[in-house]
């Protein structure tokens, strides 16, 4: 019998959805309100951490395998680098040039608005996925190691 009692399991399976939703909100409104990709990524990792504490490690491994998490982290890092490099081609020949804002959004009268930041929003999504997937991976590895050593004794 893995995990905790049924009360904890039911409530944590409801709360997990709310935590993921709050993390996504924090990531996508990072250019208007406090926080951004870093804190949102830690929120995404902590939702799976809650699931792991309540249900045990096997359920989490079935829901999000570590190989998939590593692939998500690699693709997020690649996306961040690709956003940086694409500033070289679409603009003033500068690394990290914010070409979406400078070309179409500057002076359009939508200054403090949801879509008004250009590549900053995309880069924040990449950073959030990177941080979340990496922290999830290291917590899973720590718990796996503990299970192995206690089983061998």
């Amino acid at each position: 019998m893995k995990g905790m009692t049924i009360i904890v399991k039911t409530i944590s399976s409801w709360v997990k959805v709310l935590i993921v939703l709050f993390g996504i909100y924090i990531i996508h409104s990072g250019h208007l309100s406090p926080c951004g990709g870093f804190a949102g990524g830690v929120f995404l990792a902590s939702s799976y951490l809650l699931l792991m504490l309540a249900f045990g490690r096997d359920v989490v491994e079935r829901e999000l395998p570590p190989s998939v998490a590593l692939k998500i982290a690699c693709w997020a890092a690649f996306t961040f680098a690709a956003i940086a490099i694409s500033g070289l081609f679409f603009g003033k020949n500068e690394f990290f040039w914010n070409y979406i804002y400078q070309k179409w959004l500057a002076g359009a009268g939508i200054e403090v608005h949801f879509i008004a930041a250009g590549t900053i929003s995309l880069a924040e999504f990449a950073i959030g996925l990177l941080v979340g997937a990496l922290l999830f991976l290291v917590i899973l590895n720590l718990s796996t190691f503990r299970r192995d050593t206690s089983a061998s004794r």
Binding site: G30, H31, L32, S33, P34, G36, G37, N98, Y101, L105, A106, E111, V112, A116, A117, G118, T119, I120, A123, E124, I127
Partner: peptide
């Protein structure tokens, strides 16, 4: 930069 949060505009 178009970001109202100055910290976010400095970071990214």
């Amino acid at each position: 930069t178009g970001a109202a949060n100055i910290v976010s505009s400095v970071i990214l």
